[in-house]
Computed example of a mutant assay.
Amino acid sequence: MTEKQIVVLGAGYAGLAAATRAGKRGRVTLVAPESRILHRIRQHETSAGLPVRRPAVAEVLRGRGVRHVRARATELDLAGRKVLLDNGDALAYDTLVYALGSRTAWHDVPGAAEHAHPVERAAEIAERLRTAQRPGTVAVVGGGATGIELAAELAEAHPRWTVRIVAAGQVGGWFSARGHDHVHKVLRGLGVAVHEHAAVTAVDTGGLTTAAGRIDADLVVWAASMEPQPLAAEAGLAVTPDGRAVVDDHLRSVSHPEVYVIGDAAEVTVPGTGTLRMGCATALPQGQYLGKVLTGRTDEPFAFRYVVQCLSLGRRDGLLQFIHGDDSMRPAVLTGRAGRLAKAAILRSVVMSLR
């Protein structure tokens, strides 16, 4: 491998997987402000105040030719092939790996950004619950996987609080009939109040206004949807209307082929599978694949097929939903203790897979 300077932006699952593999044979600079991995798939546990092991970035990078710069990228100079950082430095690159991921999308809901807590601030949510003078009501906005996991975990860890999950559509509505029914059975057993078809139209200090009526809450947690970080679009990379970078079948930007974009930041379409959804399940394989590309170990197009979707449903239950390669549902599921153990095994494998 030639001594080209590779710069990786972002220490999420995609960025770390790409950096560790490229660092086996080349010089890599990883730019990320974190000293420990974010571990976003365990944020529901952190929010509930449970101890979560988050390995140090240095531990993940150990033995690799990767230099970690603890800073945040503020601007991309695509013409000059430089990354400007918030510490005043500028990094030159021959190859840029853009893996800055996604952030909470507020969708211009009045008061949401001011009064709701995004799930990224999991430690802050835990502190609010821990220091509250008395139990109250927490409303989790979002009926997707993150919202379901969060509502279940909070209800189990804080049984004196009233937990509500509020969704614009159905909670877990994409699962198979067996999967959907199990999710709702567990939520009922934990005392979670489910509000479906209740799109949030405003958030204030006392709770939510929804299409189905008023929901009072002492704490609002926003887990409704995510959007790409804006830096790619601001720099001039070709992006979709929702801000995800347009890439080819080798994950290169179609407008700037010296830039690879992976993870939630990219719109990746795979023949026979479709356009990949955001999440660890798709980000980690992209990082692993790109590491092989950057070290010359493959020139094949990126390929991906789905296998399962999994949920934590508190500490004693879980759901493993088997799916077709195109992300459509199979009837079969694992639930209860078997589902929980399967999800736990997947969580353990994620950290090991980063290297």
Score class of each variant (00 low, 15 high):
Q229F: 12
Y260L: 14
V254W: 05
G279T: 01
L320S: 00
L237M: 09
V246K: 09
Y260H: 15
A281V: 11
L320N: 00
I262S: 06
V259C: 14
P228A: 13
A281T: 08
Y289C: 03
H256M: 05
I262A: 07
R244V: 01
R277F: 00
Y289P: 09
E267H: 04
Y289S: 05
V254D: 04
A283W: 00
C310Q: 11
V246S: 03
V268K: 03
T240P: 01
T240G: 03
T295E: 06
G318T: 03
H250W: 12
G314M: 02
A245G: 06
L284Y: 06
T273A: 09
H256P: 09
T240I: 03
E267S: 11
L313H: 02
L231W: 15
L320Y: 02
T240E: 08
A303C: 10
T282M: 02
G287A: 07
Y306C: 04
L276F: 00
L313C: 04
Q309M: 05
G318L: 05
D317K: 07
G279H: 01
D264Y: 10
A232W: 08
S253G: 12
V261H: 07
Y260S: 15
V308G: 00
A233Y: 12
A266N: 04
A303N: 11
D264Q: 10
V259G: 13
Y306D: 06
T240W: 02
R305G: 09
L231V: 15
D242T: 11
V254N: 07
A281H: 09
D299G: 13
R252A: 13
G236W: 10
F302M: 04
V293G: 04
R316Y: 09
R305Q: 15
F302W: 07
F304K: 00
G291P: 03
G318C: 07
A283N: 02
Q288H: 13
V239M: 05
E267Q: 14
F304I: 00
P230Y: 10
G236S: 08
T275L: 02
P271N: 13
R277N: 01
Y306L: 03
R297L: 13
A265V: 14
G274V: 11
C310D: 06
D242I: 04
C280M: 15
M278G: 10
G279R: 01
G291F: 04
V247T: 10
E258Y: 12
A265S: 14
D248C: 13
G263V: 06
A303S: 13
P241M: 14
H250R: 15
R316V: 06
G287T: 04
D249K: 07
L294I: 09
L320C: 02
A281S: 11
E300A: 15
F302P: 05
P285H: 06
L319P: 15
S312W: 01
R316A: 09
P285G: 08
R315S: 07
L251W: 07
G291A: 01
A232T: 13
E234L: 14
A238M: 03
S312I: 00
A232V: 12
C310Y: 10
P230I: 11
G287S: 11
L237T: 10
A235K: 12
S253T: 11
G272C: 10
P257T: 14
L251E: 04
A235D: 12
D248H: 13
L311Y: 07
A265E: 13
E267P: 01
T295N: 06
R252D: 07
T282I: 01
D264L: 08
D317Y: 07
Q229Y: 06
D317G: 02
T275V: 07
Q288L: 15
D264G: 10
V239F: 05
A238P: 06
G243Q: 09
